[in-house]
Design a protein around this nucleic acid. Sequence first.
DNA 1: TTGAAAGCGCTACCAG
DNA 2: CTGGTAGCGCTTTCAA
Lengths: 384, 384
Amino acid sequence: MVRALSWRPCRPCAQPAFFASFTTFMASSRKPTASRTAPRTAPRSAPTPAPAGRATGSVTLADVAKIAGVSPITVSRVVNQPGLVSAGTVARVQEAIQRTGYVPNLLAGGLASRRSRLIAAIVPTIANSIFADTIQALTDRFSQAGYQLMLGLSGYAATREQDLLAAILSRRPDGIVLTGIAHTADTRRRLLAARVPVVETWDITPTPIDMLVGFSHEKVGQTVAEFLHARGYRRPAILSASDQRAESRRLGFLDAFGRHGITEVPSSIVPAPSSLGLGREGLARLLDGGARPDVVFCSSDTLAQGALSEARARGLKVPEQLAVMGFGDLNFAAHTYPALSTVRIDGPAIGRTAAECLLARIDAREVGERIIDLGFEVIQRESA
Amino acid sequence: MVRALSWRPCRPCAQPAFFASFTTFMASSRKPTASRTAPRTAPRSAPTPAPAGRATGSVTLADVAKIAGVSPITVSRVVNQPGLVSAGTVARVQEAIQRTGYVPNLLAGGLASRRSRLIAAIVPTIANSIFADTIQALTDRFSQAGYQLMLGLSGYAATREQDLLAAILSRRPDGIVLTGIAHTADTRRRLLAARVPVVETWDITPTPIDMLVGFSHEKVGQTVAEFLHARGYRRPAILSASDQRAESRRLGFLDAFGRHGITEVPSSIVPAPSSLGLGREGLARLLDGGARPDVVFCSSDTLAQGALSEARARGLKVPEQLAVMGFGDLNFAAHTYPALSTVRIDGPAIGRTAAECLLARIDAREVGERIIDLGFEVIQRESA
DNA sequence: TTGAAAGCGCTACCAG
DNA sequence: CTGGTAGCGCTTTCAA
């Protein structure tokens, strides 16, 4: 059913296998695969010869200052607060900067000013991720404000978040964006001790570490349940990844159906992160286990799409015989799955709002706390 | 056809609209939506009272040294090269570190040692991106080696890459991973001037800036063309994003079909980045323009999926009447589109290999250049 | 195996 | 508007 044709580079530079291990690659790649045809652009000799001792050889503020005939602090001002320097001086300094190719050293700047202009964000993963939009929005807003986003991938284990946090904290970020509200006590303690502004996102709690921008997953589960119940579904099932937030949605879902007297809700829990394969397997397990649901609520669109495939493979009509509900609206539902309903989260809004919270806090050194609920949207598509 | 139910937070904390603008949010969010029920964990008072002057109040190496009864340099060694310190001293120092909650300051460390332990990577985007796997692999390998990855999103404009690079260079990364080989002359010059190890990825050229790990997009286009031609397709069309690499594939494709005497290849170019909507539109434009292809080669799986939707909407049988070929194998083809063929790239291998190249260079300060071609794989699926 | 001194490149804090 | 001085917290170098 699947045929593959793999193409490998020509003989002299071929790797032993497509999935070359590094050992292999090291062994065979000593000779470059293509000889250099054009000579490499010769690195320009450093304008200022490297001084003795520990100097790096790269252009410093002092070098620029000397050339422009001003003091280092004036160059610093031209770079950071040009408004405080006379136009003539600015011009002179800027020309010197151009000539020397000066690149400010933010390690030094950050050390001296205790502002790293760095903001860290921790997300579980970026692989076909619902967080991608949020990250993009954060990146955009922060770079516009002169900050850089440092992304940390934590996976779905809280312990990795802890290690990651240590690495991040040692860079002295001016702010931190976290995904979710489930952190170890240690994480919480360190964050508080570091006295760094924090925004938790994509979830909600009355007791955030600092600030929070998100929505209630329990409410999502409840709303979806009510929504489905109102449309006549009475045999719900759940296909969920073993993820904190997915679990909250599941509980909300069970809760709401329970209040309608429906307590038998077969659930299939698959390991995070979601994949299409897990979606297929999960639904298969559900059905093979004897469940005969009329709707299955999946914890992600990815899982939902896998479930759709499995349903189709089994000849089930969707949504007539089995309706499928996803979560995330990864933009796929809209175009390819007229039968898939889902829950849309405004990822960019979460990012933008979180960024504003952080920037406001950084600027004003405010102490106020904020919890912002951005809500969500249930999207139903009838079959085309 | 689409019905939406949006849920907003309860009255007192409701945002005026689901897509709340920040101005609006600022206006309404002054009162937190939930009052704090549990008292916040009180930040522990700093073990060492903040000294006068510019001191930050956070624990420093000197603080730990004083408590452990050793010199600062010994603490530094315990943290960075424990092998050089006697076991007893290590224990004593580590206890002091625990007690004080000391977090090393890598800004200071990086400044002093001229090694930031930071590696930057620039990718166009992370939204349902073929680069996600590569990024994950880079992150994994680097964090294991004690480096942190700093991700920059450049979009698809070379000028933004330039700005981003300036921001990145000012953090003095120990290495840089670039996506693609198309950079401005200025970018190239700066990179060379910074004397920082660079790996270009996801493409190939005989004249990289420094090192390179990728494959030939032209070859992909050629191989796909040969593949399709061998299977009897004679009326190819192209649906491609306006992206440098996609364009290379397109040219290779045209070239190979041209050699078989087929020169009429209708092309539809859509703006990058790809989306399902653009895929639908692109195919629609192709067909409405009078093209009657028997196969369409899309520059990404996302575009291909959109094209599939459009084909279905028009009642075309896939692949009997119109075969669809994608690129990237975003793991969707395997499970949901038995009719979709694609080209698989081993993203993780690119990441791993690029990481090894960089680490080797950083360690050894080698000057050698390397070009590594990892190839690709054409995957054909017959209809289920 | 440990330590003293001297910076890394930049900015805060006053003076002028 | 501009500059001198004194660090930011760490690591390098060299000596003990």
